Amino acid sequence: MQKTALVPYARLPRAHHHRHVLTSTVDVFGVAHWLLAERAPQPGEVLPFDALVVSADAGGDVELTELSSVRARWPRLDRLPDGGFIVAAARARRYEDGNQVQVFDTLGRETSSFSVGDAIQHLLVDGAGQLWVGHFDENPVGIRRWSTTGAPTWTSDGADIPGLFDCYALNVSGTAAWACTYTDFPLVEIRPDRTDRPVTVRANRIQGAHAVAVHGDRAVFYGGYAEERDRLAHGELTETTVEPADVGLLTLPDGLAPGRRRVVGRGSRIYVQAEPFTAWGVFDLSG
């Protein structure tokens, strides 16, 4: 089976390797971010705590932002177009008073907070500053889009997406989103600002992927079940279906399997970060 190696993309500067990586992501503009604490959260530890965001682009430019009073023990992170940050707790039970999602300004000060529901699988900010949230099956509400003031601006309710119990893959680029959802794994194209057809559902036989990228009439799906964990499956898009094409494996730049990893889908790109979570690699379908 053909192997495709990730291209090295962005690295956490070595000066920060002594800190614990709480989470990491790549934003809609291609900048990588790491949310760091002095050490790993401990059971029963008192929250909140101060944290550091280290931002690095593909060219190696680095920016630091201190966040005050972060409440999420197991956080999700993304950057807003104005330079502020969103930090959210994946589980909402202890934040049911509206404090699950924190919005920080460019100086790291909390400006607002709200809740979006339990069991966050994906949290991605789009180019207009809207917050997309995909949930896993302990809270099967599907996919929703929120403003930074906590107002819902789009929901998958009534969108006629088959088998929407778990948002396995979510790709947000510009103001559009693409998703693959359990149990049927259709490729769902979501364009809320389009009045004629905001949601397009394409039947898809490629199952279990945890990341998707799209470019023109092509798509690629990364991941799968069991021995297909490192699968990179290509497909051709028609009006109503995804037609499977080539299948291979995606590896780290050195050719090894990633093992534990984070993945982020942005347009034509899939970013992968393997343990110890200090470096991002990229696969670009457009290339």
Rank of each mutant, 00 (worst) to 15 (best):
1 M>R: 11
5 A>W: 03
5 A>K: 14
6 L>T: 09
7 V>P: 00
7 V>K: 13
12 L>I: 06
14 R>W: 04
15 A>E: 15
17 H>R: 13
19 R>L: 14
24 S>M: 06
24 S>Y: 02
25 T>G: 08
32 A>R: 00
39 R>T: 13
42 Q>I: 02
42 Q>N: 03
43 P>I: 03
46 V>L: 10
50 D>R: 07
51 A>M: 11
53 V>S: 06
53 V>H: 09
54 V>I: 13
59 G>Y: 01
67 L>K: 06
67 L>T: 05
68 S>K: 15
68 S>C: 12
69 S>C: 09
70 V>A: 07
71 R>Y: 03
75 P>Y: 02
76 R>L: 12
82 D>G: 07
85 F>K: 00
86 I>S: 02
90 A>G: 14
92 A>G: 05
92 A>T: 08
95 Y>T: 02
97 D>L: 13
100 Q>Y: 08
102 Q>A: 13
102 Q>V: 05
103 V>I: 15
104 F>Y: 15
104 F>I: 07
113 S>K: 12
116 V>I: 11
118 D>Y: 02
121 Q>D: 10
126 D>A: 01
127 G>L: 12
130 Q>P: 00
131 L>I: 15
132 W>H: 12
133 V>H: 06
135 H>Q: 11
137 D>G: 06
137 D>T: 11
142 G>S: 05
143 I>H: 05
144 R>Q: 15
144 R>T: 14
145 R>F: 00
146 W>F: 15
152 P>I: 14
152 P>D: 10
153 T>N: 04
159 A>V: 08
160 D>G: 04
161 I>G: 04
161 I>A: 01
164 L>Q: 12
165 F>G: 01
166 D>R: 04
167 C>Y: 02
167 C>A: 12
168 Y>L: 07
169 A>T: 12
170 L>R: 08
171 N>F: 00
171 N>D: 06
175 T>P: 04
176 A>P: 00
178 W>H: 14
179 A>G: 10
179 A>F: 08
183 T>W: 07
185 F>Q: 07
185 F>T: 09
186 P>A: 07
189 E>A: 15
191 R>P: 04
192 P>V: 01
195 T>E: 14
196 D>S: 15
196 D>N: 14
197 R>Y: 01
199 V>L: 10
203 A>V: 04
205 R>K: 13
206 I>D: 02
206 I>F: 05
206 I>G: 01
207 Q>L: 10
207 Q>H: 14
208 G>I: 12
211 A>H: 03
212 V>A: 13
213 A>M: 03
213 A>D: 08
218 R>K: 14
219 A>L: 04
219 A>C: 14
224 G>V: 12
225 Y>M: 11
227 E>F: 11
232 L>R: 10
232 L>G: 11
233 A>F: 08
234 H>C: 03
235 G>K: 05
236 E>D: 13
243 E>I: 15
243 E>W: 00
244 P>E: 02
244 P>D: 09
254 D>F: 11
255 G>A: 09
255 G>E: 11
259 G>N: 06
259 G>T: 08
261 R>E: 11
262 R>E: 08
264 V>L: 00
265 G>I: 02
266 R>Y: 04
267 G>S: 09
267 G>H: 10
269 R>Y: 01
270 I>L: 06
272 V>S: 01
273 Q>W: 01
273 Q>V: 00
275 E>R: 14
275 E>Y: 13
277 F>Q: 06
281 G>H: 03
283 F>G: 02
283 F>T: 02
285 L>F: 14
